[in-house]
Design a protein around this nucleic acid. Structure first.
Length: 697
DNA sequence: GGGCAGCTAAACAATG
DNA sequence: CCATTGTTTAGCTGCC
């Protein structure tokens, strides 16, 4: 992604843009332009700066508390075998150990991984290293001048508005990227924290932080820094200044990723000049560090509640070590700051969510659906039954019309689709036909095995207005349409209307999807066609659906031997529904019963069989052989011989003369009774043990 | 590579 | 005759 492109762009000028992601062109161009202009790119977005502001105090506090000398990190890297070739900017290496996230801080504070003695040792080491750094910094002072200016721009906005204007566009470019990536950053950050900070072990008094440094490779440290600050630090500038360096990853953006780390290491191991360059960075970055110290600015200590005046950076360091050493007070202040940061992050998250909702809303109103609303959180509340899950462990398909669509599901409020039921939506489309050539990223459905109605409901507004193909199978949608209907039954045309009403996507290419609907209705045994006097409508056998409404292939879907017709009639829920729906026009209870059956046919059957051994057998048979029976039933119903249609037969023969009493759950019984009217019905037949020919293939 | 699931297209028939 | 509805089949793609 962006990280990759940025990595490549920075890591090697000779190989710039190789494999850069399409979505990173802006960033890439920005970086390129910056280099080509000979100016140091200030790739710090406003969001990053803001984030940095929030983290500065905490970072600085961490330095004090941990006493992790920046140069100690550098030295560690130098000792590392990988370090010589590692082209991590020294400044980055210096800064990184200072970086600490609230979580990290909490770990440190809570676990008390560092004893006061250890901290004292570290403090001494830090001071010694700082002196070394100061010496080095003189040598490369000239190289730092430009960087310093830029750093000043970053930290003291407004001092050099001219150059900042030049960077403004770059910042804007990053802002949008950052907003989208922040979630990934946070997740990755957690991983890095585990890799890094968790390696800190007490009981290593001499080098208590060694594990920390070694546990996190420099690239990771850089990434952590980036992620924590969400900004480009002076190191970014440095790395861009030294275009020959293979600094990869972190120079690019705040979205550090493991892959980038690997790239960095890979490059590092092959670049023999890295050590020299590292030294340069080492010296230069100290000044940068001084300039960029989160607790130091405008000659004032920025420790919360301090504001002590410090003439220069060394004096500031002295002040810091003296006044803000690791003690209860500092610790408490750190915790407070931690809370502040967390609160701000929370607020940021909420605001982002709000922004997303706003964008979605505006998109809804707009006439350009491709502009990108995103489906709401589709993965949050998967609550389907196991059967459904097994039936549909599919990833999301791609959208024909919105290539950029749903990558980042967001949560949102009320569902328009329905609040009346909690039916499972069902299978997600495993793939999407590339016929329309517009892929939907499957990422947005990662780990989604199935969706519940609330999920689809959450996104209903989205699909209503965005011409995005819903990531559900036709069967799932048809079922949804039917179940949403008041009486759990719809005519084909009503199903069409539901599709067009609920999904903008289905407002065109009607011939295609309508044909698909018809095909699905016919092929899926869970859909039951019920013929009425004035037409026909479709119901859904939800139990069959949950079991798996697989299309029957390689054989006639509805083979239905005549000799089984009566049996089928007797066992078929569809027939029951037929009766019910037939009565729907004369019985107010019909709808409720249908709904009950549609939503939970099995319980219904069980209830129906209660207290009646004969019915119990029948119910079991129905429960077990539901699908097969349905199949046969539909076969008859759709037979080319209308006169023999079981549906019609049921309707004509039984329905009207066998009122169904839902309260008593006599549907099956009535059905059996009426089934006796069938010429081929054998009352003595043992339907309970009758093998299902559903799977006869 | 095969099987499966899902989608699309098409042919065909029945019906209104 | 036409449109709609419904069935069936074939072919394709993607995933496992």
């Amino acid at each position: 992604m962006m990280q990759e492109s940025g990595t490549e762009t920075r890591s090697n000028d000779s190989a710039i843009q190789n494999g850069a992601g399409p979505g990173n062109h802006l960033l890439e161009c920005t970086l390129r332009e910056s280099r080509s202009n000979g100016e140091t790119p200030l790739e710090i977005g406003a969001a990053e700066l803001a984030h940095l502001q929030q983290q500065q105090a905490l970072q600085a506090a961490r330095q004090i508390l941990i006493n992790q000398q920046p140069l100690s990190g550098i030295k560690t890297h130098k000792r590392n075998d990988k370090q010589p070739s590692l082209q991590v900017p020294v400044s980055v290496a210096m800064m990184t150990p200072q970086v600490i996230t609230p979580q990290q801080m909490q770990q440190i504070l809570q676990q008390q991984v560092l004893t006061p003695q250890q901290l004292q040792v570290l403090l001494q080491q830090q001071q010694a290293l700082m002196l070394q750094q100061q010496q080095l910094q003189e040598f490369y002072k000239k190289q730092q001048e430009q960087l310093q200016l830029q750093l000043l721009q970053q930290q003291h906005a407004g001092k050099q508005p001219k150059e900042q204007q030049q960077v403004a566009t770059q910042q804007l470019a990053f802002q949008q990227q950052l907003l989208q990536m922040q979630q990934l950053q946070q997740q990755h950050l957690l991983t890095l924290q585990r890799q890094g900070l968790l390696s800190i072990q007490p009981g290593q008094p001499t080098l208590p932080l060694q594990p920390l440094v070694q546990g996190m490779i420099p690239a990771e440290l850089q990434q952590l820094w980036k992620e924590v600050t969400g900004s480009h630090t002076a190191d970014d500038v440095v790395c861009n200044n030294h275009s020959t360096l293979d600094l990869s990853t972190t120079c690019v953006s705040s979205t550090a990723q493991p892959k980038a780390s690997l790239l960095l290491n890979s490059h590092a191991s092959t670049n023999g000049q890295a050590s020299v360059l590292t030294l340069k960075r080492e010296s230069s970055s100290h000044e940068e560090y001084a300039q960029n110290h989160s607790l130091y600015g405008h000659g004032v200590c920025k420790w919360p509640g301090c504001e002590a005046i410090c003439e220069d950076f060394p004096s500031f360091l002295k002040h810091l070590n003296n006044e803000h050493a690791l003690d209860d007070r500092s610790t408490a202040q750190c915790r407070v700051q931690m809370q502040v940061v967390q609160q701000l992050e929370l607020q940021l998250s909420k605001d982002k969510e709000r922004l997303q909702a706003m964008m979605t809303h505006l998109h809804v109103k707009s006439t350009e659906p491709k502009a990108s609303p995103q489906p709401l959180n589709l993965v949050s509340s998967a609550t389907l039954s196991k059967t459904v899950s097994e039936a549909s462990p599919q990833s999301l398909p791609h959208t024909p019309t919105t290539p950029t669509a749903p990558l980042t599901p967001i949560t949102q409020g009320p569902s328009v689709i329905t609040t009346t039921s909690i039916h499972n939506v069902g299978p997600i489309r495993r793939r999407y036909s590339d016929k329309y050539n517009v892929p939907i990223s499957s990422d947005w459905m990662i780990s989604v095995d199935f969706l519940s109605l609330p999920d689809i409901a959450q996104n209903q507004e989205f699909y209503k207005n965005a011409e995005v193909r819903p990531p559900f199978t036709y069967a799932s949608l048809i079922r949804q349409a039917i179940l949403e209907s008041p009486e759990k039954q719809l005519t084909l045309n009503e199903i069409y209307n539901w599709f067009t009403r609920q999904f903008a996507y289905f407002r065109r290419n009607a011939a295609t999807w309508k044909g698909a609907i018809r095909t699905n209705l016919s092929l899926h045994k869970c859909f039951i066609r019920v013929e009425e006097e004035y037409g026909s409508f479709w119901t859904v056998d939800d139990e069959a659906f949950k079991r798996g409404h697989h299309i029957h292939r390689g054989r006639p879907r509805k083979p239905c031997p005549d000799e089984h017709f009566d049996q089928l009639v007797a066992h078929s829920p569809s027939l029951i529904k037929n009766i019910q729906t037939s009565h729907a026009y004369c019985s107010p209870l019909s709808a409720a019963l249908q709904a009950s059956m549609a939503e939970n046919s099995l319980p219904l059957y069980t209830t129906a069989s209660m207290g009646n051994p004969a019915l119990n057998s029948l119910a079991n048979a129905m429960r077990e052989d539901l699908n097969g029976v349905m199949e046969h039933t539909n076969s008859n119903g759709s037979d080319s011989s209308p006169g023999r249609s079981p549906m019609q037969g049921m309707h004509q023969v039984h329905v009207k003369e066998e009122p169904l009493d839902p309260d008593e759950n006599e549907g099956p019984l009535s059905l059996v009774t009426t089934a006796n009217h069938s010429p081929e019905f054998d009352p003595d037949r043992d339907y309970e043990d009758e093998p299902v020919n559903e799977d006869m293939e």
